[in-house]
């Protein structure tokens, strides 16, 4: 396409309109000027509807995710970086090395081009920092009122190292529960920007790509790791309850071992929330065999994303699958999972 006949996209004041999704010149320009620039790789520049890659030998994993977070920009991230981190993490939780991502954008008519550019750049940076390229994508535009700004849908593929078979039903009584850091950061950061909640805090979302951390853990613990999971919507409570049910066990957790940043605790106090139920986007829970627990924990602490890693409890026999917790106060309670996220559209 000859550039001299094309007006540059007005990133300052311009908005996405229906022509940008219509498959014609306008859409091509949008894709080139915003997405190709942001992701900056040959796959996308080739401009095909698909991208090819060689399949390495071994077992592969594939994942898909939808991102509907509101607001789109929050302290510590945005829907774009969140999409990259989240998809990579889903792959990493299998112990797999993430290889490629796809990203599909559903944009509402009227969405500011400047915001789209910011989000795309943020995704590009996150992708490059993680060394996991976005190799194919799609763009659709829907009428005003039909998409609340922007929805992003992703998919990702990765390769599992030979011999690893993390599985949700693999945890056994006696296994150790490890967590890679503080809980509740992401949910509080997003909530702080919700208009109707109106509180100010400096908490940043913990949104981060965890595949490097996972690789370190796998090197230290190998098949002694039973399962990894990132506690996103529903928080640590949901994750532990899911695993308890899937592995037919219970858990005993020590509240004193949990790490909650003071500002997160204070925000939860204001809102009447329990940090255990608040979403995280840069943390993982690992259930590991007791004999590898020390080694895995040390490997986690050596990584910047796991510096505050801690052992928080262990798995027990329990046909009722309770997650029991010894409170800091000294009494016992169970950690239940709520029937739904306390606030919608947290990721």
């Amino acid at each position: 396409m000859s550039k001299s006949y094309r007006r540059k996209l007005d990133l300052k004041n311009g908005r996405v309109d229906l022509s940008h999704g219509a498959g014609g010149r306008a859409m091509a320009q949008l894709i080139e000027d915003i997405f190709h620039n942001a992701f900056d790789n040959d796959w996308l520049r080739a401009g095909n509807d698909q991208s090819a890659f060689d399949v390495p030998a071994g077992r592969m994993v594939m994942t898909t995710d939808g991102y509907v977070v509101s607001p789109l920009f929050f302290p510590g991230g945005d829907i774009g970086s969140l999409a990259v981190h989240g998809t990579i993490n889903d792959i990493a939780m299998a112990g797999a090395k993430p290889l490629y991502l796809s990203a599909s954008f559903i944009i509402e008519e009227g969405f500011p081009l400047g915001d789209l550019d910011r989000i795309a750049r943020s995704m590009g940076e996150a992708s490059r920092a993680a060394a996991v390229p976005v190799i194919t994508g799609d763009t659709k535009v829907v009428e005003r009122g039909k998409a609340d700004g922007l929805f992003i849908s992703t998919a990702g593929v990765g390769i599992v190292p030979a011999g690893l078979n993390f599985s949700s039903n693999a945890a056994r009584p006696g296994d150790v529960v490890l967590i890679s850091g503080s809980i509740g950061d992401h949910g509080v950061a997003v909530m702080s920007k919700r208009e109707n909640l109106d509180f100010e805090t400096e908490i940043l979302s913990d949104s981060a790509a965890l595949h490097g951390l996972v690789a370190d853990m796998v090197a230290a613990g190998g098949a002694g790791i039973r399962v990894l999971r990132d506690p996103t919507r529903g928080g640590l409570a949901a994750t532990l309850n899911e695993l308890a049910n899937q592995s037919d066990i219970g858990f005993q957790i020590d509240e004193d071992a949990l790490i909650v940043k003071p500002q997160v605790a204070a925000a939860c106090e204001f809102l009447g929330l329990d940090p255990l139920n608040v979403a995280n986007e840069g943390k993982l829970v690992a259930i590991v065999a007791p004999e590898v627990a020390e080694a895995v924990l040390a490997a986690m602490r050596a990584d910047p994303l796991g510096a505050e890693s801690a052992r928080i409890g262990f798995a027990v026999v329990d046909p009722q699958h309770f997650v029991e917790m010894r409170t800091s106060f000294g009494g016992g309670r169970i950690v239940d999972w709520l029937s739904g996220e306390q606030l919608p559209r947290i990721c």
């Binding site: 509180f199 605790a265 204070a266």
Partner: peptide
């Protein structure tokens, strides 16, 4: 303010 979190 409570531990760095403020509300009106």
């Amino acid at each position: 303010t409570l531990d760095g979190v403020s509300k009106t």
